[in-house]
Simulated assay, not measured.
Amino acid sequence: MIRINLGAHGLGRVRFAMSPLDAAKDLLFALARSPRVLRAGWRKQAVEALSERQLGLLAVVAGGGPGGYAPDFLRPEPAGFQADLDTALHQVATTPSERIRYELTAAIGGHSWGQTVGQRPPQLLLTAMDRGEEYVAQRIAVELEQFWCAVLAPHWPSMRARLEGDVAAWASVIARHGIADTVNRLAPNLEWHDGTLKVHSLATSSHRLSLDADAAILVPSVFAGRAIFCAAEPPGAPAPRTPLIVYPAAQNDCLPPSRGDELIGTTRIKLLAELAQPRTTGELAQRLYLSPATISYHLQILHRAGLVQRTRRSRTVLYQRLATKPRLADGLE
């Protein structure tokens, strides 16, 4: 179990963030640690990209070892709510050498591969480390960009809309119930109690850590099945970071990238239920506690699939559900 002692002041500085690079790391980690949670489409594309583009170092470092630890520098700390890809890649490539050394040393000697027979670090990683921490950081950044462009770039707009919708929904819950109650709802293994944020590990894990912090970052993921703690900062850690917790997005379908599957999801089911009578984008946004942009994105897909109709009345556009079958052949992206 991870204990983050925040207190009331630290709880007030908890914030949400998201990044395209986070999605890449989450997919790679899930592929290595729990591939069964991924749909076949994601597994196939990820494996093909790693193999065809020879991204072996990225696969080794991002997947972690038997202990489950994957170095955190692949997930740079976001300065704002939504980081762009180039900024995040630059952060990875320019990670301080002492931070690279600290995290890889922890992976090799403690958290991941351990020191028992049969658990030596992969030779690929050892060879890269021999060339220095700066080389490792720059090489990982290059391979991360190639992986993201090959696997995630075509689907990032819809993925981003899901993540934005998730954060918007939780913002509404915070407004009604407060941040402490909201944190307790984010994931089954995430708990706020008496000034402490707790991330419960798997039953098979004996890892324990308690640290003090004055802030925390919450990051939604479409690939995470439970809350995952990142950026552990015990006393003396170089280039310390704000504790970051990845939690499963409420619309966590982990859909493979296919045309028909874009219709599946909690948000569109709710939209269709609301559209039994004509409604505007603004009305739907208010009723579902989502941003108008997110609502508009989902409505466009439903309209192209032949599930909703839209009519204009003066300056107002109204949407309503149609009782017809979706045109999967030509209606979906």
Rank of each mutant, 00 (worst) to 15 (best):
R185M: 12
H155V: 13
S258L: 12
A216Q: 09
L190P: 11
Q45Y: 03
V199N: 06
P326T: 02
P248W: 05
E98Q: 14
Y247Q: 01
Y102R: 14
T280Q: 02
Y69A: 04
D253K: 14
R160C: 13
L74E: 00
V167M: 09
V151W: 04
R312Y: 11
R259C: 12
T280V: 03
T105K: 13
L218R: 02
T182S: 07
Q320N: 09
E143K: 07
V199L: 06
L11R: 00
P243N: 06
S291L: 14
D84W: 03
I301V: 12
M159G: 05
A329E: 15
D72Q: 01
R43I: 09
L307A: 07
Q138I: 03
G178E: 08
W148P: 08
I179P: 07
L28Q: 03
D130T: 06
P220K: 14
E262D: 04
I108N: 05
T94M: 11
P278I: 00
A161W: 07
T127C: 05
G109L: 15
T196H: 03
G265R: 02
R53E: 15
L299F: 02
G110Y: 11
E262R: 12
A329I: 10
H111N: 14
H193Q: 14
F29I: 13
L38F: 10
R36G: 06
H90C: 13
A273D: 14
L307G: 07
D86Q: 10
L322T: 11
A40D: 15
T316H: 05
H155C: 09
I2H: 05
A216K: 08
L332K: 06
C254W: 06
L89C: 06
H155Q: 11
I140M: 14
R279I: 05
G64P: 02
D26E: 11
E77A: 06
R36M: 10
L272D: 01
F229D: 08
A141V: 09
C254T: 10
H155L: 03
R287D: 12
W156E: 08
E52G: 07
L299S: 07
A224H: 08
D330R: 15
R101S: 15
H200S: 11
G331V: 00
T182F: 02
P96V: 13
Q309E: 10
T94K: 11
S158K: 12
V136K: 11
A249L: 09
A187M: 06
A175D: 15
W192E: 00
V308C: 09
L209Q: 13
L244A: 03
P257W: 04
H200E: 04
G41P: 09
A141F: 08
N252V: 03
A79V: 14
Q309I: 07
Q251N: 14
G65C: 09
D166E: 03
S205N: 02
L74R: 00
R139A: 13
R131I: 00
G41E: 04
L318T: 05
I301T: 12
M18G: 00
L125R: 06
P234R: 01
S206G: 15
T266E: 13
P71C: 10
S205Q: 03
A83M: 09
A8L: 13
T311N: 09
G65F: 05
S112Y: 03
V60L: 10
F16S: 02
L152D: 03
K198G: 12
E77L: 10
A168E: 10
